[in-house]
């Protein structure tokens, strides 16, 4: 039935190009040949299922073995829907990020900023029946990267989503409102459409903010919708 309807193509300009010269890392990694368009079959229309029983949620990233992580506690909450506004329920979200000092707990991160023994920086949450989810974490710091002289990544949190099918897989990054680094960031600016770009910026939300505890940000995520527009084969 509806599970066999193909997903619509992405809206023009809403997705970044693989060939984004300002992001130096794309130069040798983007294919030169155009992709071959294929019709969606069971391979693309089905996808993995993750249950919280088998994949334990970690919705509080601020607690380490020896105590609380250093930094500004924040709550990030949002809703996953599809392009028709329908909730995407019971779907796994993977989250990872740098610590408050802008350092990842990762062997390849050589930035001269301190690690926090109480902050690993990986979380996992599931959307509920209405598509709602939330995570408690630490606001990540900005950090330098070798893309160009004096390049700094804006504060960001990485998100990985699956949705109902392999065709809805999404890996993205969430940014923070008012960050002066956004206008200089080739990853963020690699999305051609300004409105699509700005939807990656979370909104400060007093309703999510918990008194005397943590600021709250809203980050809603939209996955591809089905049908309506005929699939180009």
């Amino acid at each position: 039935m509806s599970e066999t309807l193909p997903f619509r193509p992405y809206a023009p300009g809403s997705q970044p190009a693989l060939d984004t010269p300002a992001y130096v890392g794309t130069r040798l990694r983007h294919p030169k040949q155009a992709p071959v368009k294929i019709a969606q079959s069971i391979t693309e229309l089905s996808g993995p299922r993750f249950s919280p029983t088998a994949f334990a949620p970690l919705a509080d990233m601020t607690r380490g073995a020896q105590g609380a992580a250093i930094g500004e506690r924040i709550i990030i909450a949002g809703r996953i829907t599809d392009e028709d506004g329908r909730p995407v329920p019971h779907s796994m979200i993977e989250i990872w990020q740098a610590n408050a000092a802008g350092r990842y707990d990762h062997p390849n991160d050589s930035h001269d900023a301190p690690l926090d023994p109480n902050f690993h920086g990986a979380g996992r949450v599931f959307s509920d029946a209405e598509g709602n989810w939330q995570v408690l974490t630490i606001k990540p710091g900005a950090y330098p990267w070798p893309n160009h002289v004096n390049a700094w990544r804006p504060n960001h949190v990485h998100f990985s989503l699956f949705g109902p099918a392999f065709a809805t897989r999404l890996v993205t990054q969430m940014y923070f409102p008012g960050d002066p680094l956004l206008e200089y960031d080739p990853v963020f600016n690699g999305i051609p459409d300004a409105a699509a770009r700005n939807r990656l910026i979370a909104a400060f939300d007093p309703q999510i903010t918990r008194p005397d505890f943590a600021l709250g940000y809203r980050f809603d995520i939209v996955l591809r919708g089905r049908g309506a527009t005929p699939m180009e084969a």
């Binding site: 809403s14 990872w96 690993h120 990485h158 699509a196 990656l200």
Partner: peptide, 17 residues
Amino acid sequence: MPIATASQTIGPYWHLL
């Protein structure tokens, strides 16, 4: 009508997950 959220690179530190 909402449109699908933009992709961003998975970056070099995805091994955290």
